[in-house]
């Protein structure tokens, strides 16, 4: 919450943070792409199932 007030950060710091986030995101996407096919399929199914369950709750 306190950190939300922080607006006068230098351009350099902003660039540094952007770089860190880009690195992290690239790693996360690589992790997902390189996940063994069997696992990917399973987690895909899991997600679908979860979404369906959520929909049911809304009704």
């Amino acid at each position: 919450e306190d950190a939300a007030e922080e607006s006068n950060v230098s351009a350099e710091l902003v660039a540094q943070r952007k770089r860190l986030v880009d690195e992290w995101n690239a790693w996360r996407i690589r992790c997902r792409d390189e996940m063994p096919a069997a696992l990917r399929k399973k987690s895909g199914e899991g997600k679908k199932k979860q979404e369906e369950e959520e929909k049911e709750e809304i009704e």
Partner: peptide, 16 residues
């Protein structure tokens, strides 16, 4: 609610 709204380091989209 403020926890979910807070983006202490701007609008960068971060993968979970």
């Amino acid at each position: 609610e403020s926890y979910f709204r807070a983006k202490p380091y701007g609008d960068l989209e971060i993968e979970d």
